[in-house]
């Protein structure tokens, strides 16, 4: 379950990083924004909850594209650090605005939509809530779609090409802005999906951004430019977290992902499935 959450969030980091070499540290906040967008759409589509979710996800896609067009586009060609800090600043801004608009209180979009989070019995006696199941399913679907898109689709290959050498890609007739905007849009979309489903499952408040930040080590452990890596990294980080919390100390929850990350960086800095060359090239 935790692994699915992390994986769904982590692929957002990977998407943006892979294409534009920018680490989007506002991902947690964008994901939270997606969840709050659900509160908005919930008011519109009270009767039919999938419509509300779809509308919120669509809004998020749009948000991602707009963030690129109005903010990150200005940062192309700047230092990577500056670009990363811009995302940090964006995160701070979003967080402030979200508190202003929706207040810091815990909210339950599931109630607003009038859906019951029934639990489903699994074979083997375990039980899982409806939205958790939905989340796991979504993660699998998203990964399946993204992987085939990037591997086989022409646009996928172009996204990879743009990530490696933007200049050459442009000279080969690729519209970089379109590719980047697409990456941001997709990334925000997947993030929002995660945010929405978590919110439906367990409510929504300001701590959600922290989950977003914790998913980021998962992306790094797997290798920042690899989707398969993000999946594997999420599994590792999530199981480490569950085990350590269970057997050692519940306070560790916030630290575990980063502990795993340090271990990983010492042994294999480019991650499980990442590409090595960009780390150290003369």
């Amino acid at each position: 379950m935790l692994a699915a959450i992390y994986a769904l969030i982590a692929c957002g980091y990977v998407l943006v990083y892979r294409v534009s070499r920018v680490l989007n540290l506002a991902h947690g906040e964008l994901m939270m924004l997606g969840a709050y967008a659900l509160m908005l759409t919930a008011a519109q589509f009270t009767t039919y909850w999938p419509a509300a979710i779809a509308a919120a996800v669509g809004l998020s896609l749009l948000t991602g594209v707009l963030v690129y067009l109005f903010l990150m586009r200005k940062m192309t060609g700047e230092m990577v650090l500056a670009a990363v800090l811009t995302t940090v600043a964006l995160g701070i801004l979003l967080r402030g605005v979200m508190v202003l608009v929706w207040s810091a209180q815990q909210q339950y979009p599931a109630q607003a939509l009038g859906v019951a989070n029934t639990s489903i019995a699994l074979p083997g006696g375990a039980r899982i809530s409806f939205f958790s199941a939905l989340l796991i399913l979504t993660t699998l679907l998203v990964y399946g779609a993204l992987l085939s898109f990037l591997r086989f689709g022409r646009w996928g290959i172009r996204m990879r090409a743009a990530g490696q050498s933007p200049l050459l890609a442009a000279q080969r007739g690729i519209n970089l802005h379109a590719v980047y905007a697409l990456a941001w849009g997709l990334s925000t979309l997947t993030g929002a999906l995660a945010g929405i489903l978590i919110a439906l499952d367990s409510g929504l408040d300001q701590t959600m951004a922290i989950i977003g930040l914790k998913a980021f080590p998962a992306a790094l452990v797997g290798g920042l430019d690899s989707l398969v890596g993000a999946l594997a990294g999420s599994l590792i980080v999530a199981s480490a977290e569950v085990l350590l919390i269970h057997y050692v100390d519940p306070l560790l929850s916030e630290v575990v992902p980063f502990l795993v990350l340090i271990a990983m960086l010492v042994v294999r800095p480019w991650g499980l499935f990442g590409t090595r060359e960009e780390l150290d090239r003369v």
């Binding site: 290959i157 990879r160 090409a161 490696q164 050498s165 200049l167 050459l168 890609a169 590409t275 060359e277």
Partner: peptide, 8 residues
């Protein structure tokens, strides 16, 4: 100089 995409 950069004439091909090295990772493709």
């Amino acid at each position: 100089r950069e004439k091909v995409f090295p990772n493709l």
